[in-house]
């Protein structure tokens, strides 16, 4: 038996909204420690890694580890029915064929129960090594989201350069070229604050289309942490009370 009660159901709605355009069918791994998932987008350019810690749920029980194959598209449809103030219970019997979702209103005035049919999906779990990155940028998630969105008007590729003092977002397109440079600072204003942890200068190129999809998670966390090393995927980490959502994006290289 697996059962998890989340008092703040809105966070689950936001998580699923943040990944549904990247991954459509995923295996959730449920253990006594956490609910987790790892899935690549269809073109294998991006990877989503989600961990929700059991200790952060109001109630949590998982008698035996289980893999739950879920259609994210259909889960998103059902979660739309949950109110923003609703609590959400996730429940599955051992060797389950359905995932039961229960949405309860704040004053217990209304309860909705749905059984989502589970899928049997091939597991393609990748081993991602723990690694030190050359550069780590911590900044406002809404500011990063705004920069990516605005630069998308110029071209489809973002050139990201980080040194010990600043981070530069540069683009080059048919209409011209441009860049936005932000210096490391410890401003009281969260949208201006930028923390750099850089051992080596790094300069890499990434598809803005994917960064824009990742930035849907800016509603989950005020900050985003970008981890960069030459010639490996960039990691965008959004941390929140319940756990963390990480996106990996393979770089573009000059032909």
């Amino acid at each position: 038996m697996f059962e998890a009660l989340l008092g703040n159901g809105l966070i689950l709605k936001k998580i699923i909204e943040s990944i549904k355009e990247l991954v459509t069918e995923v295996n959730f791994e449920v253990t006594s420690e956490a609910i987790s998932l790892q899935a690549m987008d269809a073109s294998h350019v991006a990877l989503v890694v989600l961990v929700l810690r059991a200790s952060e749920f109001e109630e949590y029980r998982c008698d035996r580890p289980q893999t739950l194959g879920v259609s994210i598209t259909n889960l998103a449809k059902l979660l739309k029915i949950a109110g923003n103030d609703d609590s959400i219970i996730l429940r599955a019997e051992d060797e389950a064929h359905v995932l039961t979702l229960v949405f309860t209103g704040k004053n217990n005035e209304k309860m909705c129960e749905f059984n989502l049919n589970l899928l049997t999906l091939d597991s393609e779990h990748l081993g991602i090594p723990e690694q030190e990155y050359s550069a780590e940028v911590t900044m406002s998630s809404s500011e990063f989201s705004r920069i990516c969105r605005e630069l998308t008007q110029v071209t489809d590729t973002l050139n990201l350069s980080v040194d010990k003092e600043s981070v530069k977002f540069a683009v080059s397109g048919d209409i011209g070229t441009g860049s936005i440079t932000m210096k490391a600072n410890n401003s009281d204003k969260s949208e201006e604050k930028l923390i750099l942890n850089v051992s080596d200068t790094v300069s890499m190129a990434f598809a803005l289309r994917y960064l824009n999809l990742f930035n849907k998670a800016s509603s989950l966390s005020d900050e985003v942490v970008l981890s960069l090393s030459p010639e490996v995927p960039v990691v965008l980490k959004f941390a929140f009370d319940l756990g963390e959502l990480k996106y990996f994006l393979a770089p573009k290289i000059a032909e």
């Binding site: 073109s43 350019v45 991006a46 090594p129 190129a205 490996v232 393979a250 573009k252 290289i253």
Partner: peptide, 12 residues
């Protein structure tokens, strides 16, 4: 011209 790499080139 930039070529897009894929995730499984890095992790498996």
């Amino acid at each position: 011209f930039a070529v897009q790499l894929i995730i499984i080139d890095f992790y498996d």
